[in-house]
Design a binder for these strands. Structure first.
Lengths: 249, 249
DNA sequence: CGTATCCTTGAGTGTGATCAACATTGGTGG
DNA sequence: CCACCAATGTTGATCACACTCAAGGATACG
């Protein structure tokens, strides 16, 4: 009954549940589509109408100021869900844009809300999802607020590497990041020029390289060291609700 | 039931629900206590064991790096709940510390989880709560990543003013912020010295002042202008929409 | 009182922004 | 095939914002 008494398998079950649950939901109501790079999937300030699940490709969640300054809040990788919490409000405060060509499943908000009302398990799983997003956003805030430029960039690279591997990619594929330096800059809160200089510095240290317009992570261990990377915030695979109270379906 | 077809009253109901629901829950299982200023309520890295609801006073949610750099992730004001999403994991990645003397109700995690399993409505309401926290954290990230020091500080002051008023304080009380400049600095990602200089600049412009160790907001409308403050991210309730006190157009 | 905490200010330094120029690549159309 | 353009990356020069270090002042508290 103790929270910490969960087995690894139970944790894994929980981890996969939100995606699979939505997948089941989607089998009835999904609307699959593809999008081109740079295509806007959700407009800032628009009315929330659907939840998206990324099947393949990369996207970003961002906000912009009136004068054009942009902050990339989060990267969206295959398996990630976006727009879930916005559907309970009448305005989506952020935009979502494709970084690469991607495929996405979209589920109408009313189906999601219906499912939320129907399935206890779904509602609980979404709370777990909210927690894991919160952990990542907290860590990013720490990155932007209190780390140096080099720490920030190394830290981001390690996090993306981890997330890609967990989404099922083999290590070699997970070391390739299809993002531009302007994109990195808008995520880390620095100018594109400074992002380039910081990146060059990492290249000189042999930890990363640029190839075919993609970033390659050459030495993830060294990046971990440079970033002062703490694993725990991403290791929420150990989600720790006891299975009994959780599997109340 | 489409989200957009919700009436204002339904939204207002939703807004109040999470607090009142926990209040009911608390009536059976709550453990009220008080804490002194600077007292640690939740340790970084500790096992989540309870959810806190602030009754009075201010607290912060924060993370620290190994070398002592601290990032204040969020301010916790009366009515705010903290630790909710952490109970689904086996480690609380952040700490919580009182800024002022405060009173807090604490509810054992197992009661919250039991309620989560029992009440469909509670689980849904928490998703709404997750969304509103997400909106505030997104806006803060934008603040730290893409705004100038003066914009950041003015923006924070306006947000705190709004939140205090919505928590039920009259306008005059909501203009008093019991925080030190070091605290502001750790929230906005700047040094204490620079926070002081930025604050002095705001004082010179007549928008704020310092009195009895508390910050006074003298001209919220001017702060809104300086910050380029967009109302919408906090206006997820009809109550806020109808507030005319800031019609400084 | 003495100590601690917070605020304030100056001086010097450095990180990172801005402006500008140019290289490289890929795509488009003549 | 080439001219052109757009997007991205690279680098230098200059400057501003923000950091660190340092010292002093105000206030509260035991």
């Amino acid at each position: 009954m103790n929270v910490s008494s969960m087995t690894d398998r139970q944790r894994h079950t929980l981890r996969c549940r939100s995606a699979s649950h939505l997948h089941l939901l989607g089998s009835r109501t999904q609307h699959a589509r593809s999008a081109e790079a740079n295509e806007i999937l959700i407009n800032e300030g628009s009315m929330p109408s659907r939840v998206l699940v990324i099947d393949s490709g990369w996207a970003i969640r961002y906000k912009t100021l009136a004068d054009g300054r942009r902050q990339i809040l989060d990267f969206l990788l295959p398996g990630d869900m976006v727009g879930m919490f916005a559907i309970l409000f009448d305005q989506t405060e952020y935009g979502v844009q494709a970084l690469t060509p991607l495929t996405v499943r979209s589920i109408d908000a009313k189906h999601v809300i219906a499912e939320l009302n129907r399935s206890q398990q779904f509602a609980i799983t979404l709370n777990w999802l909210a927690g894991s997003v919160e952990q990542r956003m907290d860590e990013h805030l720490m990155r932007v607020g209190r780390r140096s430029a080099e720490e920030r960039m190394a830290h981001l690279f390690v996090e993306l590497h981890r997330r890609l591997k967990r989404s099922g990619l083999p290590d070699t594929a997970a070391r390739r990041l299809p993002i531009t330096q302007k994109t990195i800059a808008d995520h880390l809160g620095m100018s594109q020029v400074h992002a380039n200089r910081t990146f060059r510095s990492l290249v000189r240290q042999g930890t990363v390289s640029l190839s075919d317009g993609e970033i390659l992570l050459l030495d993830p261990c060294e990046l971990v060291r440079l970033a002062g990377f703490e694993e725990s915030y991403l290791c929420h695979t150990p989600a720790c609700v006891n299975e009994q109270s959780y599997s109340c379906a």
